[in-house]
Amino acid sequence: MNAQKHTVTALVEDKPGVLNRIASLFRRRGFNIESIVVGHSEVPDLSRLTLVMGGDEAAVEQVTKQLYKLIDVVKVSDITSDDMVARELALVKVRAPSSARGEIIQLADIFRANIVDVAPEALILEVTGDEEKIGALLELLRPFGIVEVMRSGRVALARA
């Protein structure tokens, strides 16, 4: 876990334009955001987002305060120093002619990745984990020829 990176979660009202407001805030104030993920929460009409950002404590504090200032933002928590569960999902399309397929499937097993699509010359792997785990799998797959990667960015919850 990179100590420089902060994980902030927020509950926001599920209204048109809310993501635009948040993105506009980051752009305007020059905040450097590494990833942002938004989805429905357990509460109707509220979405939960996870964002990962670099920067010092003061920068994170400003982001938190500026987020709070948005009318549609209900709650913001910097959970970096909390005990938290953080995961990322990646879909990896990798070149897999029959000669290489066995080895790729072995790697997928080790990383507990699922093979979600099989084509004559390629496979799509679905893997979840922290950024390091996904990075490690990508490194191992690279020699086979990675065609496309889609990473979700981090989602996180503080432990109960």
Binding site: A58, E61, K65, Y68, K69
Partner: peptide
């Protein structure tokens, strides 16, 4: 009154 002004 604006918390975001503090420490900005």
């Amino acid at each position: 009154i604006d918390p975001a002004e503090i420490g900005k």
